[in-house]
Structure formats: C-alpha cells, structure tokens
Design a protein around this nucleic acid. Structure first.
Length: 835
RNA sequence: GCGGGUGUGGCGGAAUGGUAGACGCCGGGGACUUAAAAUCCCCUGAUCCUAUAGAUCGUGUGGGUUCGAGUCCCACCACCCGCACCA
C-alpha cells in the first residue's frame, strides 16, 4: 500500500459496483442459513434524502451487515411510502402530476441512497403508489370487508367553507384553513371505518409479548388503547327521557352537581328547535376536530331547562350541552363531579355550580376546603352517605353493585381506542374499491376487476377531490344489477399503505399480496427502526393489520415487529437575520462564538439547536457532505457520540473529525508488518475484549459505545510497537469497522491481499481466555470521598484489600488518627473506610 | 389540556448503587516544516491554594434513603415527541 490517503471519490463507487455485481445483498429465501429481517421505516419520497433518513438507514445497515457477518441470511429491503398530500400540493403549486412528481423524487432519492453504500436488496423495491401494490391492498381491504371488519358511518371532518374542501389537521392553523384563512367548521360525512376496536384486547395483550420494544412505546400504546372499567347508568330526565352516561369514577357519584352531553348528542339535537340551543350547537361546530384543540379550547356550556335526577339523592341537577364532551367516547354524556375531575372543575367554576368534596386524605378532612383545582388522587370517601369511610376502589365496586342490584346501571369496560376512519377525500391515495348503486346499495368491486386504478387525467386547478369532479372515472355499471352506478371517490388513509408493506417486501407474488409460506421464512421483522413520532399510530395500525390478516386466515403472524428501536432526530444550530429571516448553514461563516453571513458579512444571530427542517433552513444536504468527505465519514458521524435514541447535533467540526479518523485508520491499516514477531499481551487482550464489546454494543444498537471502543483500540494499536499482536489488533479493527465504514474496510482488505469481499467475511473470533484481566484498580474512600487508589491482583481477599487500604499513606493522612468504625470492602472494586 | 420521554464539563456523551466526566469535538501549548496543510505529543470541569502535593464544590432544582446516589424514592422546573386527516 503506497497511497497516503484514502480517496472515497473513487473507492466508494467501485465497491458499491462490486457489491451490486456480486448480488451481495440480495436476500435468498431458500438459504439454509438462519434468517434475519432488518427493516427501517420506509421514506416518503419528498424529493431529497435528509440527514434523518441517513441516520435511520445507517443504523439498520450496520445491523444488516453485522448480522450477515454472523452467518445470517439477511433481508434488508427498501421502498417508498409514496401516497400522500405533498404530491397533491406540488400538483397545485407546480402544475405537475402527483405521479410524475413522486416517481421523479423516487429516482433522485434512490440515487442518493445508493451513494451511501447501504446493504439494501433493491430487487424487492416498490412504491405504494404502484398500481400493482395498491391493487393487492384493495384485495386485502375487500377481504376485511367480507370478514365484517369494514363499515360506514357518519363522522366529522374539518371543513373549509371558502375552499369548499376537507382539510387535514395539519392544514388547520389556529382554527383556520391554511390557504383560505377561513374559520374551519366541523362537518359530518359518511365515511369508511376499520374495526380496530374488535382487536383492542388482543392489541393490548400483545404488548406483553413484545419484550424487545421500548417500555415507553408500549406504555403509550397501552394508554392510547385506554381500557377502563366503570359504571354505565341512566339518569331520569325531567322531560321523561333516560340519559345513559358512563363514568370511570362511580365512587364520586355523590359529588355530582351537573350532567353534560355533547353538542351532537341526540338530547341536544332534540332541543335544537330552540334558536338559542341551535346557535350554541353551531358555536360548538367552530374550530377543528383535534383532541388538543378540543381540550385546550375554553369550556363552554349551555344550560338547558331539563334536569337530571340523582340516582341516590334524588336531587335535580342541571343538564348542560358542553363543548368538551366527546360524542365518540363512552355514551357522549357525562356526570360532572367538579371536585375530582379537572375539566368538570373548570366548567363548574365558570358556571357557578356546586363543588363538593367527596374524597379526602382521611375522614377527618371531610370538610377541608377545595383548592383551586380538582383532586383526582386516591383517598377515603366522605360526604357520601353509605360510601363514607370506604376506599376509592371499594366505593367503585359498591356503587356498581348497587346499580346492578337496583337494575339501573351496570359495570362496563370502555376503550379509549376508536375505530379507524380510513376515508380521505383526496386523489393521491388507494381508491376504495366500492361502487354505490341506487338499486343494490354498496357493492364491492369484483376482485377480478382490481386494481381500481387512479385516472391519470386529473386537474388540480381547484381545491377538493379531483376524483369527485372527474368527467368519467366514477361513472360505472353496477357489478350486481348492471345499472348505472358510481365509484366511491374516497381514497384510503396512507397509513394503510404502511400497515402491510413489510409483508410485501418479504414476499411479492404477482397474483396475490403475499405468499404465507415465504412470509413464514422471514417474519417477524427482527429489527424495526424508525422515529419515535410513529410510536402510536403507524405501529398500532401495522400491528392491527397483521392481526386482522391473521384473523381472516391470510397470515400466521400476530406481531409484525419482534423488536423495535426508535431513533432520535438529527439537529442543527439555527441562524437568523432580523431582516432576512432564517439562513442555511451553507450561507453562514462561523468565527469563534460569532457567525456572519457569507454574502453580506453582517453578524448573524446563532439560535437554538433544533430538528433539521426546511422552515428553519438548518439543513445540510447529504449529497454535499458525501461529495466532500465520502460515504464512510458520514456513516461514522451518524453512529458516533450521541446514543441512537437521542438527538444527534450535526456539526461541521464533527464531520471533520470523522474524516480525520477515516484517514487515521487508512494509515494504520498500512502498518501491518508481516515480519514483526513477538507478543504484546496487553494489546492482544484489548483486541479480544473489543471483539466481544463491539458485538454486544451493535446488538444493543449502542453504536456510540461501539465507536468509542474502536477509537480506544485504534489509539492503543497506534502506540504499540510492531508485533504479531499488533498485526492481529489492526486486522481486528478492520473487521470491526466493516459494517460501519464498508468502503474503507473493503479497500484496505483488498490492499492487504485478501480474496473476495469483506462483506462476505465472518465476524472475528475471540479467545475467551484472553478477556480476563489479572490486575484491578481498587478505589479507597474515606468520608465518602476518593482518597487513593491501589492495584491489586484480581480476586484478592477482603482482608488483604482492607490491610492494603489502611496501609496507604494518603489514607492515613485523611484519617488523621480518627477511630475506624467500619470498613466496607467490595472485592475488585473499592474499600470504604467509615469513621 | 392529556399521554410519553429527556436533562452530566465550552459541546456530543461514558459510568451492574461503588474512582463522575471513558471516547470524540472544540480550545491551549509544543514538535515537524523556509512556510502552510497534513501528522504527532502534552494539557484541558469549577473554585481555592503554601501549586509535581492538597482541599472544597460539582450530574436541571429542592428534599429523602444509604457506609456510598448521575443511578433508588418524593416534589418541582425546562425542553422534546404524540394526541386519531402530516408522514
């Protein structure tokens, strides 16, 4: 080896071509090797790969390459989550067809991914907007329909009254439409739903089996599913009707001071003849449909003339129509207990309703005044007749028992999880394969007519759904009676596309969505890696689809992702000029603490380090970085320093450091000296320890720790004199970095005269006998502080360590003649002297 | 508002309840060089100090448990993620 520098601009492409030619990363489902399916959440083809993608895919790539070195047949595929709103926005803004825009983006991004040298099986690539893919999805959707998992009902959407279109939540800003600026209204439409609630118990129980999922994600899903037990009972209303309500706190029933129903509750609708009531219901329709908007909005109520009779006291309580009661949860009506529910408390304060304490820390505090918020904690029931003195738990059971005995209510389980509304009034998605016929009603499209393809000739001149206004597309003959009928113009939520793509990666026959036998070879995904922002929706929907498909006999897998890892974001400092707004890092020059704009030279305000985003312009383009430093330095940066679950701050200095390390390794690999003899036991031991430690770190996805260990071994190998041990250490480093910096590693491997590709080589073996240290450093503490350290043979007795510690001059100085009361000895660790 | 998470030097971070700051970046000093780049070596938490020694403080804040707490417990603060039509 004579080259003094590693040149990625030639080496990267050469090795990428070599891997491609050899088919190194093509997964063979017929292999005898154990299988390992490594998957990263597939990207939306927005146009450019960003650093977040690079980080995500680098992590998966290291795992995939490492697993291959450990003798696994690895499936590591890539594709495109290609339906969605940005394509329609581009169509409106740039007058380009969503499909054209999307496929062009895919080509550009694929080229970018290839430059980074990912070990991907591109033979399995697809985009969810391929008619082949969404056709199979339509077939699966029809299977679910036949199994009774699909239904239609009316549900609210955000309606922009100026653009006359349905808005997504993200298109509603401060309650107004993002383009029109008009105040958004809630509007009811007939929409399609999937019965995810049928699987609530299974989805909840299944979490227990997911041992390699982060506890935080399981907890979030558990809370989202939200199983609760409580009491459902009916109030007798003064108008003679009965009003069913649901409460999780029947123990507080004596604290009830009002009853409230949702604005779209039948009782409220029944009063809408009164103009005042109608006006209030209209008022409640204002604003968006999100939970956050509803819960942060000011609590509003309308006091009706109706009263509700308390089931125990017989007291007449006012009935309100209230904006904070959700029709979708429970019965759409609640009993208000202001003392022990924060929303009820705020409502009661505003409308001057009684706030009665019915739970106290102990019985003596029954008359303690309420503070300025509700008390939702545990305690003893007070001011509640026969419940007084009982625990919250006992009182719940007691009230349910009495309700059931008196036959006016019953204990019920209620779920927070709602059925999944999958209708979207948009073009760029999977057409829902149904036909509306005046004679036959709703008719599924016969399977032999799938896929129902999107029409190409659509216009985006006006907002709203182009499928709805297309001249011919929706007009069809009814498959049942042959009469005139229309296609469903709603498309499927794009979350359905990502709910089964991992199955299609594992098996892609032409005539079926997947082949269960092929699926069985690969599933479940052994490592699934993606952003924490998908902790609930995507992951829950994918779990649901998997269970639903198993339920209808299409699949023999219950949980799609055996282990899950949620990686942090890539962040960058922000730059801002008062008169020009945000500046990108490429427009800024850093000098010490200060920053200046490159063109004008004026001082730029250095802002916080936040997630890279177009809006703040704090992005760096992976292509530019690879041009400058090559793929391996970028990959190394992505793995270094920050733990993978935390945010990674991008910095120019950091990538420079990685670049230097690439060159440092290149020089080290040149220093293998075949003529060297002799043993360096300390260095050899470090190499063996590193083999074990780096493997453990990679398997735990603690890439930053693996990186630190490689730095340490590199430092030790650089300092050591030539020896056989040193050659071994250098070769070890070459193998350890192979999954992380594959181009550099292949180049050095070839130059060292090896046959074949390092990508096909095995992970190095370690000698267990070489792992054990024979000496340890013992810390000596006095008064809880370190006073001295000493070196002792590993496994030295407590008595010996104590004697050695007390013999230390520094320790004696610290003791200063004080009486030793106690000595705590932790073998091979420390001695703590207590005086 | 509700649910979940994070917090350690100038910066990213390491640390089975047992030597806090491994490793990297930045910074400082030096070597090499006509010079620079590249490379190599040393120093680098704060304060005090009689300064190759030593002391005190220090892991978001305030308490607690323990011989010993970054780690366990309680309360609080700040920031981040999600909240069902963004993907």
């Amino acid at each position: 080896m004579t080259d003094t520098r590693f040149d990625p601009s030639t080496a990267d492409g050469r090795w990428q071509a070599a891997w491609e030619k050899a088919g190194t990363f093509t997964a063979n489902s017929d292999s005898d090797k154990p299988k390992s399916y490594i998957l990263e959440m597939f990207p939306y083809p927005s146009g450019r790969i960003h650093m977040g993608h690079v980080r995500n895919y680098t992590m998966g790539d290291v795992l995939a390459r490492y697993k291959a070195m450990r003798g696994f047949e690895v499936l590591h595929p890539m594709g495109w989550d290609a339906f969605g709103m940005p394509a329609e926005n581009a169509a409106m803004e740039k007058k380009v067809h969503p499909g054209e825009w999307t496929y062009a983006n895919i080509e550009a991004m694929k080229a970018q991914l290839k430059r980074i040298g990912f070990a991907l099986d591109w033979t399995r690539e697809f985009a969810t907007c391929d008619a082949e893919y969404y056709g199979h999805e339509q077939a699966l959707f029809l299977d679910m329909y036949e199994a009774g998992l699909v239904y239609r009902r009316s549900s609210e959407v955000n309606w922009d009254p100026v653009d006359m279109t349905v808005l997504a939540n993200e298109q509603v800003i401060d309650g107004k439409g993002w383009r029109s600026g008009a105040e958004v209204e809630k509007r009811k439409l007939d929409q399609w739903f999937l019965k995810i609630t049928d699987f609530a118990q299974g989805l909840l129980d299944g979490l227990d089996e997911l041992e390699d999922w982060p506890d935080k994600v399981k907890l979030m899903q558990e809370n989202w599913i939200g199983k609760s037990s409580g009491l459902e009972f009916s109030f007798d209303l003064s108008n003679g009707e009965k009003l069913p309500v649901y409460t999780t706190r029947p123990d507080t029933i004596f604290g009830a001071s009002f009853v409230a129903v949702a604005a779209d509750h039948p009782v409220a609708q029944g009063l809408a003849g009164d103009p005042e009531v109608a006006a209030f219901i209209e008022e409640c329709k204002r604003g968006g449909t999100t939970a956050a908007a509803l819960e942060t909005a000011e609590k509003l109520g309308y006091r009706t003339e109706i009263t509700a009779r308390h089931p125990f006291t017989g007291e007449a309580m006012p009935l309100f129509i209230a904006n904070f009661v959700l029709m979708d949860y429970g019965t759409g009506a609640v009993m208000g207990v202001p003392g022990h529910d924060q929303r009820d408390f705020e409502f009661a304060t505003k409308y001057e309703l009684p706030i009665q304490r019915v739970v106290a820390r102990d019985a003596s505090e029954a008359d303690a005044p309420m503070g300025n918020e509700a008390e939702s904690g545990d305690g003893v029931i007070v001011n509640s007749d026969f419940l007084d003195g009982q625990s919250v738990e006992d009182a719940k059971a007691e009230v349910i028992r009495r309700a059931e005995e008196g036959d006016w209510g019953k204990g019920t389980t209620v779920w927070r999880l709602r059925d999944w509304g999958i209708s979207r009034q948009r073009y760029w998605g999977t057409p829902i394969p149904f036909i509306h016929c005046d004679e036959c009603g709703i008719v599924p499209v016969p399977k032999d007519q799938l896929p129902v393809k999107l029409p190409e000739d659509v216009d985006f001149e006006t907002p709203g759904n182009p499928l709805e206004r297309h001249a011919t597309w929706k007009h069809v003959d009814c498959p049942k009676c042959g009469g005139k009928a229309t296609r469903e113009t709603d498309t499927l939520d794009t979350f359905t596309n990502s709910s089964w793509y991992f199955l299609r990666f594992a098996s892609q026959p032409a005539d079926a969505p997947f082949d269960p036998e092929e699926i069985a070879k690969w599933m479940p995904v052994q490592h699934y890696i993606g952003g924490i922002e998908h902790a609930i929706l995507h992951l829950l929907y994918a779990r649901f689809w998997t269970r639903a498909l198993a339920h209808i006999g299409k699949l023999d897998v219950k949980e799609p992702f055996a282990s899950l890892f949620t990686q942090g974001m890539v962040t960058h400092e922000t730059y801002r000029l008062a008169d020009r707004g945000w500046l990108s890092p490429a427009e800024v020059r850093i000098e010490g603490e200060k920053a200046f704009s490159l063109d004008g030279g004026e001082e730029v305000e250095r802002g916080r380090v936040v997630k890279m985003s177009k809006s703040k312009k704090n992005v760096v383009d992976p292509d530019n970085i690879i041009d400058e430093y090559g793929a391996d330095a970028v990959r190394w940066f992505m793995l270094s320093d920050s733990p993978p679950e935390r945010d990674l701050p991008w910095s120019e200095a950091g990538i420079e450091g990685c670049w230097r390390f690439v060159q440092r390794l290149w020089r080290l690999f040149d220093q293998i000296d075949e003529s060297a003899t002799g043993e360096d036991k300390s260095l050899a031991r470090k190499a063996h320890q590193a083999i074990v430690a780096v493997a453990e770190d990679i398997e735990a996805l603690s890439f930053n720790k693996a990186v630190a260990r490689i730095y340490e071994l590199t430092g030790a190998a650089e300092k050591a004199a030539p020896s056989e041990s040193r050659n071994f250490a250098i070769r070890t480093i070459l193998h350890l970095i192979a999954p992380m910096m594959p181009h550099l590693a292949e180049e050095a491997y070839a130059k060292l005269g090896a046959d074949g590709l390092l990508a096909d080589a095995a992970w190095p073996e370690h000698d267990p006998a070489m792992l054990v240290e024979d000496e340890v450093t013992i810390a000596i503490q006095h008064k809880g502080k370190l006073r001295d350290t000493l070196t002792a043979p590993k496994g030295a007795s407590k008595e010996d360590l104590e004697a050695l510690a007390l013999a230390s001059e520094k320790v004696q100085r610290s003791l200063d003649g004080a009486q030793v009361r106690k000595v705590i000895v932790v073998p091979d660790r420390l001695v703590n002297i207590v005086t």
